[in-house]
């Protein structure tokens, strides 16, 4: 359809008398044709003048009031509508703040950290235990060293009496040296070749004063069968005793010998 065809349709369009399909086609043309739009305005003026062909009439007075009331209530609704955006949002987003993958990664990291903390804690605990054991070992070594030093002091003390103890038939290869310092009333025994004492048992030193054996201290050997005994505050009778012996006894010690003899001063 040409521009002139559309122009011919304009006066009928102004009367709204075009059939629907023609009206829609013309509206499309009007959207793109400024000249036709300008002429359409003129035709609408001409059509509008036909309103004066109708008799003017006065409507009922209440129509005015109804119109004004209607727009007032509409304004109130609009005001109410305008308040709506100020309400707190009732519906929270169901979308997680973090994507799911990030949540998973975060969970793995947290789990890893927790495992790490537990491992470090356990490592710390075992380190503490080892340290405690080392400290105990050190303490024992220190005590043993002190005893050995004391024993050596007894052995090297001027005027100390030295005695040899030989192994009996229970331990033929056993041998011990005993030093007795009467000035300090200390005695030291260094033994070797003794079999390890069974569980619950220990070796006990005896000395014979007169005809009666007097109890001395209890000791154990190391894994190689060696032992060192340091005994201070020996009874005065032991200072002059000539016979010393070592027997196997219950580990808490006995008032008089009950077990087999392993070492004995020759005499």
């Amino acid at each position: 359809m040409s521009h002139e065809d559309y122009k011919e349709m304009l006066p009928l369009h102004a009367l709204a008398s075009l059939d629907l399909d023609e009206a829609m086609t013309l509206d499309q043309h009007l959207a793109t044709c400024a000249e036709c739009r300008a002429e359409m305005i003129q035709w609408q003026g001409t059509a509008g003048s036909l309103v004066f062909a109708a008799d003017a009439l006065e409507p009922s007075p209440e129509i005015r009031a109804r119109v004004l009331e209607a727009v007032r209530s509409e304004a109130r609704v609009n005001e109410r509508d305008n308040v709506i955006p100020l309400r707190p949002r009732a519906v929270r987003s169901h979308q997680p703040a973090w994507p799911r993958a990030l949540q998973l990664i975060a969970a793995v990291i947290i789990l890893g950290l927790m495992v790490g903390v537990v491992l470090l804690w356990r490592q710390n605990q075992s380190a503490k235990l080892a340290l405690t054991q080392l400290a105990e070992q050190l303490q024992q070594n220190k005590i043993q060293l002190e005893r050995q030093q004391q024993a050596l002091q007894v052995f090297s003390a001027p005027g100390a009496r030295m005695m040899e103890l030989a192994g009996t038939k229970e331990a033929p290869s056993a041998h011990a040296t005993l030093a007795v310092d009467s000035k300090t009333r200390r005695a030291a025994l260094m033994a070797e070749g003794l079999p390890p004492a069974p569980a619950g048992k220990a070796y006990q030193l005896w000395f014979i004063a007169g005809s009666k054996p007097m109890p001395g201290q209890v000791f154990k050997t190391d894994s190689s069968g060696k032992a060192m005994l340091m005994s201070d505050q020996m009874p005065a009778e032991a200072m002059t005793a000539a016979t010393f012996a070592v027997t196997l006894e219950p580990q808490e010690g006995m008032p008089s010998p009950t077990g087999p003899m392993y070492l004995l001063t020759p005499g």
Binding site: V51, D55, A56, L57, P59, V67
Partner: peptide, 28 residues
């Protein structure tokens, strides 16, 4: 414009009642 518009509406609708309804609609 109530008088001229109401005249138009009565002329088209042939009824004061309908015309008053539409007049109200028009101004809304």
């Amino acid at each position: 414009y109530r008088v001229i518009l109401f005249g138009l509406l009565v002329r088209i609708l042939g009824s004061r009642e309908e015309a008053e309804d539409v007049l109200q609609e028009v101004f809304i």
